[in-house]
């Protein structure tokens, strides 16, 4: 032996690495566990960049809510809490189905894995469907920031008896009412980027369902399902913060 490293491997370790070509154990990894951990590590590093990405918008919301508090409270109370709450439950259900999907991939049950992924997709689409009706309402009320934006609901809330939360608000001064645009800008930026993540996720799910149906993830190769699960749960977590911050925390504004 010409160096110390070469003397460290014993016969057992050596044999373990002969001619391995499984997708869950590529030849450049020592063990299946090592490959798996490397994959999880990489996926988490990606998710950390996503935390920073969404975090910037959460910070903007925190700051501007403090600066223009009356405008943010009034605009926030116009959002539809039952729809937001329903969407939270829908998203949690989708995440539950995804978690079961990872389990069924682990126990190599192809049929149940495919069913779990389909349920995940259906609830993901349901979330986007509810979001469509929420966006539509904002469009009809001229609450999309830009030249078409209308402050009438915030300078004259008594003209909107069909929105009881808004109806009870005190009118805002016109200059403060203009700052409700900032709230809606952040609302569309944050929920829009969240929805874009959902759309990308649903696209990936369709691809994974197709592959899962061919049995690719029921022979011990779980990594794509597991790592997609991490992504999907991350998108859930973003919504778990968006819902209270955008919809709920302004129902009793400080006097």
């Amino acid at each position: 032996m010409d160096n110390a490293i070469a003397t460290t491997h014993d016969a057992g370790v050596h044999e373990e690495h002969e001619h391995i070509a499984l997708p869950q154990h590529r030849h450049h990894f020592e063990t299946e566990e090592q490959q798996r951990e490397a994959g999880s590590f990489g996926m988490w590093l990606f998710l950390l960049t996503e935390i920073m990405f969404f975090g910037g918008m959460f910070f903007a919301y925190l700051l501007y809510r403090n600066w223009y508090y009356p405008a943010f409270a009034a605009a926030s109370n116009q959002l539809n809490v039952p729809m937001g709450a329903a969407n939270t439950a829908i998203l949690i259900t989708s995440g539950f189905a995804m978690a079961l999907g990872v389990y069924y991939a682990e126990v190599r049950d192809r049929k149940k894995l495919v069913i779990a992924l389909i349920v995940t997709t259906i609830f993901g689409c349901a979330f986007l469907g509810v979001k469509y009706f929420e966006y539509k309402e904002k469009y009809e009320l001229h609450h999309i920031p830009g030249s078409g934006f209308s402050v009438s609901m915030f300078v004259n809330p008594q003209a909107f008896p069909q929105y009881p939360d808004t109806f009870a608000e005190k009118p805002l001064a016109p200059d403060m009412a203009q700052h409700t645009q900032l709230f809606f800008f952040l609302y569309f930026a944050m929920t829009g980027m969240h929805a874009l993540h959902m759309i990308i996720g649903i696209g990936l799910l369709v691809w994974l369902i197709w592959r899962a149906n061919r049995g690719e993830f029921s022979e011990g190769y779980v990594a794509p399902i597991e790592n997609f699960g991490l992504y999907w749960h991350f998108v859930d977590i973003v919504w778990l913060f968006l819902f209270p911050l955008l919809y709920l925390i302004n129902r009793h504004p400080l006097k």
Partner: peptide
């Protein structure tokens, strides 16, 4: 034939656990 034995016996590799 280079294999770092640390990668095979590394105690950091948690036991695989199913929820």
């Amino acid at each position: 034939h280079y294999h770092d034995p640390m990668n095979v016996t590394n105690p950091e590799h948690a036991e695989h656990h199913l929820v």
